[in-house]
Design a binder for these strands. Sequence first.
RNA 1: GGAGACGUGGCUGAGUGGUUGAAGGCACCGGUUUCGAAAACCGGCAUCGGGGAAACUCGAUCGUGAGUUCAAAUCUCACCGUCUCCGCCA
Length: 421
Amino acid sequence: MLDIKFIKENKEIVKEGAKKKRIEIDIDKLVILDDDRLKMLKEVEDLRAEVNRVSNDIARDQDPALKVQLIEEMRLVKDEIKKKEENLKIIMDEWHKLMLSVPNVPDISVPDGETDAENQEVKVWGEKPVFNFEPKDHVEIMTALKMVDFERGVKVHGFRGYFLINDGAKLSFAVWSYAMEFFSARGFIPVIPPAIDRKENFIGTGFLPQSEEDLYKTQGGDYLAGTAEVPVMGMHAGEVLDKNNFPLKYLGFSPCYRLEAGSHGKDVKGLIRVQEFYKLEQVLLCEASHETSVKFHEEITQNAEEFIESLGLPYHKVVNCGGDLGLGQVKKYDLEIWVPKEDKYRETHSASYFHDFQTRRLNIRYKDDDGRLKYAHSLNNTAIATPRILVSLVENYQQADGSVKIPEVLRKYMGGREFLK
RNA sequence: GGAGACGUGGCUGAGUGGUUGAAGGCACCGGUUUCGAAAACCGGCAUCGGGGAAACUCGAUCGUGAGUUCAAAUCUCACCGUCUCCGCCA
């Protein structure tokens, strides 16, 4: 959510921003609505002030006849207030709905573009593997090594179901353990949050109301989080944080549930696009300064880059174009790791910053040096997601004999083994 | 699952219909005192929104949302949450 004052004072910037994100929003309508809102609010408040004033008179005045008369007068004013309040409520509902739809303004450095096809590559790292044999895809490799069972996965879960078994499960634990150690060393506080979360957390982080069709829902009206970003951000909702603890760096570990409603035809095979997976997520809260946000955005991106590099996986980094940005995001980098058999990079990490878009909705503030309460800034980036990462791990490290070499850094979590076979 | 109690400012804690946005304490910030510090004393200290250059002023907020009333922290209802006892499970 943006500040309505900011919207009114920077109408053109907000409009341009929405356009860059390819989001339809009628800012002029919102501005008119807000003028109405303020006018109506003033009328209601003036009437309330009168009632308050006279009520005090009633309490003080000893003359019973006068009391009765004043009470009668106030009764009429109350009726008027009621009518005006009803009007105000209608305006407020509409106002609120529109406010939740206003996208955050993308940074000037965000390239223009419609879809992810127009994201710009800004970095390429690593050597793509050259095989002197016909490489296999991860489904083949992992099935042969009995690391995964899709048939039974579909039997038990349905479409996109999978079991990770034996080395598939072990490798997942290895990745998690390694990531836990890696990110802890960089000052991240590990958190295992609830993944079944109240609606407010989804509105607060910007996933609702827009992406309802992608979320699993419970009978109680809660939702299953598609990322630990939701509960970890919700953790401090409504709080006034101590500035001295900034930046707050959390490493959230949670199952992630995504309906993938709009992508039933895509990536139907394998572990790339599943409805239930696990992710370690970097979530960061800092003071409200653009420079600070940018600094930490680069930092959490760098963290992930170095993590991937330590695994020895070739990847590239893209700046997402305007059309590929979410409602609240100011700027986003995606890291995409090489998948040899598909002959392309696949997204594994997504690093974005939001300014106070999320914290305003979640009411996360801190007291600044000038004594004023300010909304903190928030950012997040993937640390690592399984099982998607296993795809590039096994495909890039596959050997002619069908075995898979285990990256050096993971070996200590795999009992010192060098190969999966 | 059954019965009961409770939810007040950064924290603690009074307040059961009328100038109560809310006593007292702690914490915090100024000042006096002191060579300095502590203690003591004096003063300040909620948030959000509207108007105003400002002083200031108006409105809202005592878990959340509705309601009763001229007037609600205080009464009613629903919801959320916490605690205690019993039961159940581990």
